[in-house]
């Protein structure tokens, strides 16, 4: 085990006294202020709060997209602050699955190719990649749409493809930023069902940012952020 892999194995995410500032010209904007958070493995956490409260910033820190100004962020035993940009990218490809509000599928790739995309960074053969991607699509119920392009799918179907893409590498943590924000009620319910399935049946740790109380109600734990501080 390396020096950075120091966290408790049962803790998936550990955020310790994290501060995050953005510099705008001469002004320093405080986004997170000494924040602490522990997410055990297999937990489904919903982060709520008003716009500008720092939810997405915290999610980005956990996902290794952004870096804290101070404090430590440990995910799956790795302290992210010690990794270089290249190491961080590699770490993300193995440990984090992303679910975006607007799906962010690659429009020129069909559903199967979109799901296969993260696997291109793995040493798997083409056949293995295809098999895994197909399995993921089957789990999200879109095996029959594997050759369809994002433009040929509904919003709910696109989000399901995005979820398949997020889980295809079997990541430690799934991070979801407003996953139902762009969906109608029915589709949103389906997506939340799916996320619950991955949490319960596959033991995936999920950190979800949402404004939607019904989405948050599906999580085990709800935490509220306001002005960069967890209020509950």
């Amino acid at each position: 085990m390396s020096a950075t892999e120091v966290a408790n194995k049962t803790t998936a995410v550990s955020v310790q006294n994290v501060r995050k500032f953005y510099q705008r010209d001469t002004m320093q904007i405080k986004v997170l202020d000494g924040l602490n958070l522990e997410v055990p493995q297999g937990e489904f956490l919903a982060l709520m709060g008003p716009s500008g409260s720092g939810k997405t910033t915290l999610l980005n820190l956990i996902a290794g997209i952004d870096r804290a100004t101070s404090g430590r962020v440990l995910v799956a035993g790795t302290e992210l602050g010690t990794l270089s940009e290249g190491q961080l990218a590699k770490w993300r490809s193995r440990n984090v699955g992303f679910i975006f509000q607007f799906y962010n599928l690659i429009p020129v790739l069909n559903a199967l190719e979109n799901v296969e995309l993260p696997l291109l960074l793995s040493p798997l053969s083409k056949r293995e990649r295809r098999e895994r991607a197909m399995t993921a699509l089957r789990i999200v119920g879109l095996a029959d749409r594997s050759k369809h392009y994002p433009g040929q799918l509904s919003g709910g179907q696109e989000q399901r493809v995005a979820i398949a893409r997020a889980v295809v590498t079997d990541p430690t943590v799934l991070v979801a930023d407003e996953p139902t924000g762009d969906l109608d009620h029915q589709s949103a319910e389906e997506i939340l069902d799916l996320m619950q399935t991955f949490n319960k049946e596959f033991g995936k740790t999920i950190v979800m940012v949402t404004h939607d109380p019904r989405a948050a109600a599906r999580a085990h734990v709800q935490r509220h952020l306001d002005k960069g501080v967890l209020t509950n």
Binding site: A63, I65, E85, G86, A89, K90, W91, R92, S93, R94, V96, F98, F100, N104, I106, P107, L117, P118, L121, R165
Partner: peptide, 15 residues
Amino acid sequence: QQEIGVLKTLGFPSG
């Protein structure tokens, strides 16, 4: 731009 950002998010190295 969005697509390039997504690739980087998924772990594609900048290079």
